[in-house]
Amino acid sequence: MHAIRKKRLITLAVILFILSAALGLVLYALQQNINLFYSPTQIALGEAPENTTIRAGGMVVKGSVKRDANTLAVTFAVTDFKHSVQIQYQGILPDLFREGQGIVAQGKMLSNGVFSASQVLAKHDEKYMPPEVTEALEKAQQQTNPTSSSTLER
C-alpha cells in the first residue's frame, strides 16, 4: 500500500472512530436530558408521564400561592384557563414570580397529580411571556372557543 494512502486511511479511521464515539455520547445524553413541555390541559388529560423530568407552565392562579410558615416550601397552581395544575416547590422563587405571571417550572409529576418542581423559571421582564405558555394558552383558548382563536396577544 502507498505510504500516502496508508496515512489517509489512518487519519480517516481516527476521525471515524472519534465521530462515532461522540455520536454515541450525544445520543445517550439527548435521551436523558430532553425535557418536553406539557400544558395544564395536557397534564389534566393525563398525557404527562410520571417520574420523568418534564416542564410545565401557565399563568400563576391568583390567590393560589401558599407558603409554609416555617420552611421555604411553597405551593401554587398554574392554569391555561381551562385546566390547572398544582405545583409544589422548595426554595426561593425568582424575582418576577407573582400571581398572574406566566411561568415555566421544571420537575416531575407525582402520582397524586401534583407537579413537584425542582426549578421555577420566570424571566427578567414583566412583559415577557414564556413562548411555551403563550402557545398553551392559545391552544386552550381554541378548544373552548374555536371561532376566536387569536384574541390572546402574542
Partner: peptide, 28 residues
C-alpha cells in the same frame, strides 16, 4: 439547535438541559 428543530418539525416544545452539555462536553 435541537429545540428549534423539534419545534419546526412540530414535535412539541422541548428544552435541552445543561446535563446534556456536561455529559457530552466533559469527556471530549
Amino acid at each position: 439547535l435541537y429545540p428549534l428543530i423539534f419545534d419546526v418539525l412540530g414535535l412539541g416544545r422541548i428544552s435541552v438541559g445543561a446535563p446534556y452539555f456536561n455529559t457530552v462536553f466533559s469527556p471530549i
